[in-house]
Nucleic acid binder design. Structure first.
Lengths: 251, 251
DNA sequence: CGCCTTGTTGAATACTGTCAATACACGTGG
DNA sequence: CCACGTGTATTGACAGTATTCAACAAGGCG
């Protein structure tokens, strides 16, 4: 299995052997986590967890126990913003959904590598831009899409993101989330998630058995989700071909 | 009137005259915009609009006209992430809510200043961390808070953010949003916004006439909103007293 | 004064949540 | 191999929240 982080970054920039080695080196020392285990504890604020395999999520609990998931991480994802090291980040938790391989990279190390390898840096920043777009899209979904559209949108998003890193098998992919997780992800009750899912099945848009998601027709599902086909950067790659970007130190 | 950006950044770092001048210099050449005018057009991707006075918002439209606002900008706010220059950013628009003074700062200039003034850089990054926390909190609100809590939370947030930059008058502040804007901000219909607002008034938590918002008791309203008192960094200032952070080039 | 935007209200409807019961799958221990 | 327990999925009935539609009021502005 090739390094998931590398695979992701290479969607934005073309790397040479040196860069590939540097990225691989970053991920050396990754450790395995079990399912439903916390990662990126507040205890180590200077460290960025990078998910090399598995699924994880970021969430917040309200005082009465309501949970909202506000980040879903797939292979190759950074579980924290690079500059997030500045903050205590005590306002949320990060947990695995499946057994996962996680590299805990000190920010200093990461920034050092980015400093030395401009192409890696550019890919990293482009990657963050994508994460932000994702976050904005979630806000749009939660605020203005119906439960049905929201679910369609989420399933599309996950499928496309997984496919982008080579983890989709044709029109199928893993979706190791319980209906409760899906609910906390999209602001719905478990029961309603169940009903919406069935509706999507009845409409012939998806199949879902166990944690195996199959999308009958991405185009159709996208339309049902009012998904902007460009937003995941699946056609154009931001940052590419714009010449040398300006530079500045993080701090 | 002192520079709003400077005021904001100085919440995170203590500046000397040199830094203050540098920040002020960044904002030279700011231009006035009228109400309901687009700023930060896609045409100039390398430029970051900085709001020096007034109110603005960032939004996305769905294909059938539904609008979701996913960013609210007050004096001193950057309307775009620093690294956002990498992307086309065509997925959303930014508009003023009131007459506003906006400095359009080229990313190169901004990064140059940050490169030269570490304290400014640190403050900028800390500021971005705060923006991210805000975004996450919005997701939580939209997903898991009731309309009543959501509204309470938003009003608290705006008031606290304005107070932090000296734009609150005691327990009152400006809120130049129509009920329709509020609805698009929090994923509610205009009618429901109206009803929730009235309930908040009846409960004695707020007063709202015209664009003047008065909060009877921030603590009580916070509790109604299930607002985490620490999340706006209103007690502790992230980044302060952590020693010299590591460094890396943006690209 | 009349127009337009914004705010307010009521009634009917639609959507989503809650509660409670049942079914199903999987792993453990007997 | 089966019984059992746990977690997840499914279903129905009902309650509650939020939306839609429609009308009207209030205020600013030319």
């Amino acid at each position: 299995m090739t390094n998931a982080l590398l695979r992701k970054l290479e969607r934005f920039e073309t790397f040479g052997r040196v860069e590939r080695d540097a990225v691989a080196h970053l991920c050396a020392g990754a450790i395995h986590h079990r399912s439903d285990e916390q990662i990126g504890q507040a205890g180590q604020p200077g460290v960025i967890p990078i998910l090399l395999s598995g699924f994880a999520y970021r969430f917040k609990l309200l005082s009465d126990g309501r949970r909202q998931i506000h980040g879903l991480f797939l292979s190759g994802d950074l579980c924290r913003h690079i500059y997030g090291f500045l903050a205590v980040q005590g306002d949320h938790g990060i947990r695995t959904l499946t057994p996962s391989l996680v590299a805990s990279v000190p920010v200093t190390t990461l920034l050092g590598v980015m400093d030395e390898h401009p192409r890696i840096a550019r890919a990293m920043w482009a990657n963050m831009v994508g994460d932000d777009a994702l976050m904005r899209e979630w806000v749009v979904s939660l605020g203005r899409r119906t439960a049905y559209e929201r679910m369609a949108h989420l399933l599309c998003e996950v499928f496309l993101r997984l496919r982008a890193v080579g983890q989709a098998d044709g029109e199928s992919c893993e979706l190791p989330l319980t209906q409760m997780d899906l609910g906390d992800l999209m602001g719905l009750s478990t029961v309603h998630v169940n009903r919406v899912l069935q509706q999507l099945r009845r409409d012939g848009l998806i199949a879902l058995k166990g944690s195996q998601l199959t999308i009958r027709d991405v185009a159709v599902l996208s339309r049902a989700a009012d998904l902007d086909p460009a937003y995941l950067g699946l056609d154009t790659l931001p940052g590419a071909g714009q010449g040398a970007p300006p530079r500045a130190r993080v701090a």
